[in-house]
Design a protein around this nucleic acid. Structure first.
Lengths: 209, 209
DNA sequence: TATAATAACGACATCAGTGTCGTTATTATT
DNA sequence: AATAATAACGACACTGATGTCGTTATTATA
């Protein structure tokens, strides 16, 4: 009576397969990637891989789960000693900067997956709750600013949060498709910050002459 | 010596196949759609369809060409007797309204195609020039407003045009994924109009009390 | 070191989609 | 009506991916 390997080793195998999957996905995209591709990339055997994952879809779900965990650690961004507006500026510029790196990475794969997942109606609630969570995370940040008296918003904070995501995702997709240069990610980001500043009614202490 | 059918009839066949392709694409998406599906949907034979189209990709390109022709007729929107800002408002609201209808239509299919086309590097210049054309069309509209003295823009008109597209495409994708309701298309559109009004520095004649 | 348990392997049968091509049906001309 | 030209058909061979399963290799325990 002896289970052959420790759970750690099984977990390591799982990671190994997921790493191969990431390489395949970034090279071929989600839909075009096959089990065969992942098997060959992983260096394992067909049967070995199937022991852990029965489809590329399952791999993708696990990869999404991983990034979600990373994102979950984001709300602690708002430092109590600095203005909320500053946090927003940093957040926007950080997200815009990540586009370039993401173009060669998993970002387009995620977009591709989400658009095809939408069609199959599966994960409908998963996707919706992800959206809701992201929106309300930003709303909470904005509310903090309003509570501190930094903002005197002209439109609903929820609307502003949604606009932020619409803009960001759209720009990211354009950056992926047409390149960072052509899309002028920096310029757009600064423009959007100016727009947000107005919509939020940021009360600027220093810049009132 | 006699060509069997007139060119009109061949064109009719072509339309028939494309119509079937649209139904298949909207049902299954671009990547999942196969020649087999289109053949069965069209009511024609395998060989018959292959006589006109050798791949779903070719069908897709023709469909894109058709919609491009429709879009080409859009720049004449700016009426000389009305303020440019009014045109922009109408345009934005019109685009936002089209999302609902588009959710069940070809819009997600186009997005899916573009993201997979990007990966294959083919059509790179096609896609880029489409983007450039759309941007410069809006820029021309905005320049007309500036020339008339309606606007006193705070940021470059090109940046504003790009922001407009980023926002629109992002919101459209969200609307497709999460539904019109949850995304609050109307609210976001009004919010974006307020933001644009500020960025453009719209000189409001009536509303200055 | 023996062995029980199971992780890992890889060949195999299967299936769905593809592109072709010899045959048949259709239609403008003579 | 005859026929030449070709549009349309659909069966066929082919390809590439899938999921399974009997076999082999590996390792924790006794």
């Amino acid at each position: 009576m002896s289970p052959k390997v420790a759970d750690e080793h099984k977990e390591a195998r799982r990671k190994q397969i997921l790493a191969a999957a990431v390489r395949v996905f970034t090279r071929l995209g989600y839909q075009a990637a096959t089990m065969k591709d992942v098997v060959e990339e992983s260096g394992m055997s067909r049967g070995g891989v199937y022991l852990y994952y029965g489809s590329t879809e399952r791999m993708m779900l696990d990869l999404i789960g991983e990034t979600d965990e990373e994102v979950a650690g984001m709300p602690k961004l708002a430092r109590p000693d600095r203005p909320v507006w500053e946090t927003i500026e940093q957040l926007m510029r950080h997200l815009a900067g990540g586009v370039t790196k993401g173009a060669a990475g998993m970002a387009p794969v995620f977009y591709e997956f989400f658009i095809t997942a939408w069609r199959k109606r599966t994960y409908e609630t998963l996707m919706e709750s992800r959206y809701d969570q992201n929106v309300s995370a930003v709303v909470r940040l904005l509310e903090e600013g309003a509570r501190r008296g930094e903002f005197q918003p002209r439109v609903s904070l929820e609307t502003i949060a949604r606009m932020l995501f619409s803009f960001h995702d759209g720009m990211q997709i354009h950056a992926i498709q047409f390149g960072d240069r052509r899309t002028d990610t920096r310029g757009q980001t600064e423009g959007m910050l100016a727009a947000l500043r107005h919509l939020l009614g940021v009360q600027d202490k220093e810049e009132q002459p």
